[in-house]
Design a protein around this nucleic acid. Structure first.
Lengths: 334, 334
DNA sequence: TTGAAAGCGCTAACAT
DNA sequence: ATGTTAGCGCTTTCAA
């Protein structure tokens, strides 16, 4: 069966006939022990099946090299970001502590968990908490907010240029010849306001103000489906949607209603999450550069954790238009 | 700016004018402190923004009350399970340590992270590792595998009755009058073999062996989309699909090809994940009882961690047919 | 009900 | 190159 007590550093020291300090040095591969001692210690450790206890180690050294990550386990885009955060953290020699927000586990609870783990900094992906709470948190440890704008000098922000993204979307559509372009927005979601603004600005620039129209949407497939039903009463020639998840709902309802996409209506999403890339969805979208955003977030977090804050407080990553199958020139009769 | 040192239990004790022991009791909500003391301590803790250091706490008490959870961050169904695992763990007074598998972070790496954290037991959601590796792991600490069958007396298993699930799906369809029912399978995925078997058994029971046909599918929307293209060459009257994610791909391709679901083809999924429940997908499916499975997994893990293994090694949870909008009687001409 | 003291397993500062 | 001595922040005796 299993050992009832795990061997400690002392056990190894006794067995090797040396002091704990030596064992500590050897286990960390630090210089300061003779080759012979090193050999004896390693041998003893091996025989005992010794593994250092990271908690004790970190408790003593005062460092955890741990970055706390808050995310919504139901959001595909968050999953994509977490994927890249793991990569970025490993490259920087840090570990990630994940804490998910679920329908039954709210943000304060998820954050409390991270604080208990003594993370050196927090990376919050699309947090919904009021700014005041985030500010309070930032008084206690470095906080980096990803994919949401927060105006607080103590909080680092990594986000994409949402307004620019919608400029690209609208420019792409007008370039194809579309004029009746509707925006299905994200309501109060992070980034939604900027994307709305970007849409309005672009429509204005193309002198299409009269045709501009914004339909209330949201973050989920459900929200998109509902918005699409509104759409059916008076079809535009193209739609820009708050995000890919919402766009998926739009696509689904349109298709079911017999509206051909893109022949009758072109659709542009936002995020370029895994969903959009699926061959059968094949959604034209505005890609957020999750790899870069993740790298920057980890960099920022470590920077703040290790020395004083340096560099710009807000990093805005440019989005990128990814043309796939849901956008074509408008039908002649349109 | 920020405090350079996080408040400790001693700080709280000083501020509240009591001993460390009292603070310790109060923070753990243990009896033995007067109401007045309790109030003062909590107030001091709040003012200082104190959070107990879990490492120190656990180092001292020798226990972590930590359950390590391995899951695939790209799988919706895993997200649903993790959601319920959080709930179950909280009810048992345990915490969860999440470790995600990503395209860039394989299972051994994710598991190594969990081991460093000194989790008392591991809950592996749909692990892909060979049984030999899981067995080796189980020699070091309690291991519970969820949603995959593993034949090793040292490993607890919590899964749903996959074969029964397909019996239900086929019975439902034949009950509606379907005869030409095809199964799109999950290849080598966990549970796929049992679901295939269940399909064959049910078709046999209904004396439909001649019409039984299995198409290679997989776990993802992509896999479903590809399988559906095969389907188009000779439409059956109904399809049972390995899981909801895959079924989504099937639905999408069929709809785009002008095949009406369910008028022309009925579709049944598996899992009842968030996707299936979306109003616009509205997929008839076989629900896995994630709440029960999660509760059992947590129970098993704690049981093994705290005393010797007790109770049945394998817990099989019955699935449940959820009838939604993708199944109707076959078209008369079919 | 409260407090003092002794560690948990480890690392860091200081000896030698 | 090696050993000794203090803790890290907490829980756990044990006394008061």
């Amino acid at each position: 069966m299993r050992e009832d007590r795990r061997p400690t550093l002392s056990d190894v020291a006794t067995r090797a006939g040396v002091s704990k300090s030596l064992v500590s040095l050897v286990m960390r591969a630090e210089p300061g022990a003779s080759a012979e001692t090193r050999r004896r210690v390693l041998e003893a450790a091996e025989e005992l099946g010794y593994h250092p206890d990271s908690r004790a180690r970190l408790l003593r050294s005062g460092r955890t090299r741990l970055l706390g990550v808050l995310f919504d386990i139901q959001a595909q885009f968050h999953a994509d970001l977490v994927t890249d955060l793991y990569t970025a953290a490993r490259e920087s020699g840090y570990e990630l502590a994940l804490s998910a927000v679920t329908p039954d586990r709210d943000e304060p609870e998820a954050i409390a968990g991270l604080l208990q783990d003594r993370c050196e900094a927090l990376i919050l992906v699309g947090p919904q908490s009021p700014v005041a709470q985030l500010s309070r948190l930032a008084e206690r440890l470095p906080v980096v907010v990803v994919a949401r704008g927060v105006r607080d000098p103590a909080i680092d922000v990594v986000r994409n240029a949402d307004a620019d993204g919608l400029h690209m979307a609208v420019d792409h559509l007008t370039g194809l010849g579309h004029r009746r372009i509707i925006h299905i927005d994200g309501g109060r979601a992070a980034g939604a306001a900027d994307r709305r603004r970007g849409y309005r600005e672009a429509m204005h620039r193309h002198r299409l103000d009269d045709l501009a129209r914004i339909l209330p949407g949201g973050l989920t497939e459900q929200d998109g489906a509902e918005a699409a039903r509104q759409l059916l009463t008076g079809l535009p020639s193209a739609v820009t949607v708050f995000n890919d998840r919402c766009a998926t709902g739009v696509l689904d309802v349109l298709t079911r209603a017999g509206v051909e996409v893109p022949a009758e209506v072109s659709v542009v999403g936002y995020d370029d999450d895994r969903l959009a890339r699926l061959a059968h969805i094949d959604l034209t979208t505005i890609a957020q550069d999750t790899a870069t955003m993740s790298r920057l977030a980890v960099e920022k977090a470590i920077e703040r954790a290790e020395h004083a804050p340096a560099g710009r407080r807000e990093r805005v990553v440019p989005p990128r238009l990814v043309i796939r199958g849901t956008t074509v020139p408008p039908a002649p009769l349109s």
